[in-house]
Simulated assay, not measured.
Amino acid sequence: MAESGMSGTTARRALLVLSFGGPEKEEDVVPFLENVTRGRGIPRERLVEVGEHYYRFGGKSPINDQNLDIIDHLRTEIESRGLDLPVYFGNRNWEPYVEDTTKQMAADGVTEAIVFATSAWGGYSGDIQYREDIERALQSCRDVGITPPSMTKIRPFHDHPLFLSAFARLVDEARQSLPVEQQDNARLLFTAHSVPLSADEASSVDSTHRYSGQVLTAAREIRALSSFASDGDDGTDVELVWQSRSGPPHIPWLEPDICDHLEETVAGERGDDRPIVLVPVGFISDHMEVMWDLDNEAADTAADLGVTMVRAATPGPTPEFTELVLDLVANAER
């Protein structure tokens, strides 16, 4: 059952939080991965292997609970402002499916929905694919004779001041968690989800506006807003790495991979063994790619190399993020 913001509401406008989805228990893992990889012809036994990360956590992805946490914060703030804006939740790949949520909104009398997708970025997977989800949900209503609400997707928000300032604050908190004697010497390292080079290049003819360019620009601005900016400008740029690549090895993806980069810069010629503040700039919440790829694989690599590494939190649960979403909603209404 799709989760409704307020049962029996008479409001005709609503906010839909649209996300990727994740399994809730072990028996959900393979069906979930079948949804994610639909049409790619990946054998079931391979999906069982891929699902190992989820099995390590009892088959439950953290993403749904984290999205519900974001929604709870939104509802609390909406109520405190005296607004009549029910909040709904829908996913692409697992329950509550966006198709079901859209039908529920129609049944509740919602005629206009503003859609907040849980990705800050442009490009196919960060923006266009969510627009496809919306169109599929609208068509699923039409197919059964239901008039769906109009749905307007909020723009990518990687450049929003509240997104950048929230991350900068979390960067400083992570730095302060290091032993005092290590803080001044800390190294700042940004990471985001890798994509195939072809997909990145297709996202814009202008490299600055490609997904990779958006991530780089955001990382630079976060550094400039953080305590690292006071370290002085020595002409070096931010360090940006990539994670969570998948697919055939012969297809080039954005590089360097975070673990490869750690080994090269620490154990290689550079020999940089300073403590690291790792910033998952590509993510708004601590879902599986953060918990597994960073808190397990990257953390293990750093430990093997004898380097101290702390990770900045993601901004989804913060007051700044709640304010960001409602600011984007207000601008989408104009």
Rank of each mutant, 00 (worst) to 15 (best):
C141E: 01
I146E: 01
V195W: 01
R136Y: 11
V180F: 05
V98Q: 15
D143I: 01
E132F: 10
A174I: 00
M105K: 15
D100P: 15
G122Q: 05
E132G: 14
A199N: 03
F163V: 02
E135I: 11
Q139V: 10
I146R: 00
V144E: 14
Y97G: 09
P149Y: 06
G123F: 15
L162Q: 12
S140A: 09
F157Y: 11
D172V: 04
T101D: 09
M151A: 14
P179M: 02
A117L: 05
N185K: 07
F116N: 00
E135H: 10
L162G: 07
R142L: 10
H158M: 04
D108R: 09
F157S: 03
H193I: 02
G145Q: 00
W94E: 09
F116V: 01
F163G: 06
P156T: 15
S177M: 11
R155D: 09
N185G: 10
R187I: 06
A174V: 00
G109D: 11
Y97I: 06
A106T: 04
D143K: 02
V171A: 12
V195K: 07
P196A: 03
L188R: 02
P196H: 01
V171W: 12
T191G: 00
Q104R: 08
Q139S: 12
A106W: 00
A168K: 07
M151Y: 03
S150W: 02
I114N: 03
A199F: 08
Q176W: 09
F157Q: 01
S198A: 09
I114C: 01
S150H: 04
F167R: 03
V180P: 08
D172R: 03
I134M: 07
D143Q: 11
V195N: 12
W94T: 08
R187V: 11
L170V: 13
R187Q: 08
D159A: 07
P149K: 09
R175K: 12
D184N: 13
P148A: 00
M105I: 08
E99C: 04
A107E: 14
Q183K: 04
T147G: 02
A137G: 05
R175W: 07
R142S: 09
E173C: 13
L188E: 01
K153C: 10
